[in-house]
Design a binder for these strands. Structure first.
Lengths: 159, 159
DNA sequence: CACATAATGTTATGCGCATAACTAATCCGT
DNA sequence: ACGGATTAGTTATGCGCATAACATTATGTG
């Protein structure tokens, strides 16, 4: 691949990151959220009470980031953190009622953002988009060793 | 669009941002660069001596960010900043020889990253990728008034 | 010309996310 | 059952990027 094409791709990804995040920030601000927090709320809405380590895994960010995100969302009353009974190291995070109400609003914003983002693209391109983006992501993912989650193959627990 | 699809798109963009940036960080670290700085060097390599305001425009970031980026790259000896003759407010930024040498290395890394990023995708998808990503970007770009703008012409595809 | 307005850049501050270093709890092989 | 390794979480620190407030220079009207 020549440099021109390579740069076009890298630069496009970089700019998309900046602008999509900026737009999300603008849409989430009226809800009192900063970008990144919405992902945590949505994950809790999707999975119910969750351990912080799993949250970090789902959101693709590191434990210290999860600590700060949960701390702030707890301070604003949208989530609740309790020590797990079965594992005294773990902290279980769950939505409060306020958090659930806010998450409903977040979902509306999230749909609006996605629609705005893909406006003007052919339906088939939009349909393929998540898969293409996920492929790009796992290609550069050093966390999960680029493994594809598609197979759903999990080593069975030896017990 | 239903929430599932919307979330798949937004989440995919968010994760791609994190991972692509993280991978870039890993590849640039041996060169002594942090992600974001390479874009500035490449822009200077492409356009020659440039005013900071134009740099911010090209990189899609704000004046204070440009100030910090240029300050650090100047401190590391890769760029030089001089006051413009024609406009005493403006600061002209240009590559030093060290900066040019480093940029050569950056280009190699940049090509490698792009190739790694699009690995496994059909060639035609890769060919369309920059345009698709740029469309997504301008759809959510609140900086330059929404849509087309850059070159003053329609992106492409004269039917 | 004078003066309001715009444009360039800087400082201060804040958020998200990262890594490094640390504590505390759980697991596991001997 | 003991003691090393693994895992969950926190604190400290740093970088990139953003906005807000500000100083300085250019510009374009009356």
């Amino acid at each position: 691949m020549d440099f021109e094409r390579a740069d076009a791709i890298n630069q496009a990804i970089r700019l998309l990151s900046l602008r999509h995040r900026a737009r999300a920030a603008g849409l989430l601000a009226p809800l009192g959220l900063h970008p990144g927090q919405e992902a945590l709320l949505l994950e809790l809405d999707r999975s119910g009470p969750t351990i912080q380590a799993q949250l970090g895994d789902a959101l693709g960010c590191e434990p210290p980031s999860v600590t700060l995100m949960t701390r702030k969302l707890e301070a604003s009353g949208h989530i609740r953190r309790t020590q797990a009974a079965s594992d005294k190291r773990a902290t279980v995070v769950e939505l409060t009622e306020r958090g659930e109400a806010l998450t409903k609003q977040v979902k509306k914003v999230w749909r609006a953002l996605a629609e705005e983002t893909v406006a003007g693209l052919p339906a088939e391109t939009v349909a393929e988009l998540p898969n293409v983006l996920n492929t790009l992501t796992s290609n550069v993912d050093t966390r999960r060793s680029g493994a594809r989650a598609a197979t759903g193959k999990v080593d069975k627990a030896p017990r």
